[in-house]
Design a binder for these strands. Structure first.
Length: 253
DNA sequence: ATAGTCACCTGAGCGC
DNA sequence: TGCGCTCAGGTGACTA
């Protein structure tokens, strides 16, 4: 339990994360409040503001005795008043740590974000409003954090398969009912992934150091050239928005 | 304003 | 065994 503990100090060993880590010197002695989350940002409130932590794709936090020798990729320690430290480890340094005085929503990173995907605010009406007259590929729309947060490349691929929608279709050409199906598919995909402990690939692991098992349930991602699980047609792999995109040319229209 | 591309970073996995 | 290359991912910055 971290809430209620006080910070002793914050040690930044490597400030060169996704953005330079620049924190106020006055964090020592401040008491931690209840930890929150917005999109993929962890919000750690203290008395005068909040630390905003993003784990990028390879980052994780662990709680260790504060005198544990740091490893190569241990970039930041949040030392507590009980001799422990919350340690940020991130080999690829796509993660970040920001500071924002209250209220945390004022931070520019959080200012223009769409609804949480599993909330009621993410519904057919919202997605239809975002898609209206837009020519952008529906997959790109789905991965746009201004539209909805939390949908990365893997889950966008899976949700589009589940909804039977081609990734490259212009968002504005989809009917409201199909967008509604897509909303449902996104929610189902994410809920199922959370249930399985998330998705981990290659060297990545979950917070407990073990892999997420959703990778075993992926039906299109990473399966380009293999048979579709539904119709056995060969899955197509294309390049879209700089990301590998896989779909079934038969099931997805 | 919108759409598309690029960059950041490192380790895994591959071919030689 | 070792070297060098390619790829993956989230997301803001940049270019048309």
């Amino acid at each position: 339990m971290l809430t209620g503990r006080r910070l002793r100090r914050v040690v930044v060993r490597n400030a060169a994360l996704r953005w330079p880590v620049e924190l106020p010197a006055s964090l020592g002695g401040q008491r931690l409040g209840p930890i929150g989350r917005r999109a993929k940002y962890l919000l750690l409130p203290v008395e005068s503001g909040s630390l905003i932590v993003h784990l990028g794709m390879s980052g994780h936090l662990s709680v260790v005795p504060a005198d544990t020798p740091p490893g190569k990729h241990d970039h930041v320690d949040f030392e507590l008043d009980d001799g422990r430290a919350v340690r940020l480890t991130d080999p690829r340094r796509f993660g970040s740590v920001h500071w924002q005085a209250h209220p945390v929503e004022d931070h520019w990173l959080l200012g223009d974000l769409g609804p949480e995907p599993l909330s009621r605010d993410f519904d057919a009406a919202h997605l239809a409003a975002c898609a209206r007259r837009r020519k952008v590929a529906v997959k790109n729309l789905l991965m746009n954090a201004k539209v909805v947060v939390g949908v990365g490349n893997i889950y966008a691929n899976e949700a589009l398969f589940l909804a039977g929608i081609r990734p490259r279709v212009a968002a504005g050409r989809l009917t409201r009912s199909r967008l509604g199906e897509l909303v449902a598919a996104v929610k189902a995909t994410l809920a199922s992934a959370i249930q399985s402990g998330g998705t981990t690939l290659r060297d990545f692991t979950g917070a407990d150091g073990r892999p997420g098992y959703f990778v075993h349930e992926l039906v299109v991602y990473g399966r380009g050239g293999e048979p579709c699980v539904r119709c056995a047609a060969t899955l197509k792999e294309v390049w879209l928005a700089g990301r590998t995109t896989v779909y079934c040319p038969q099931c997805q229209i």
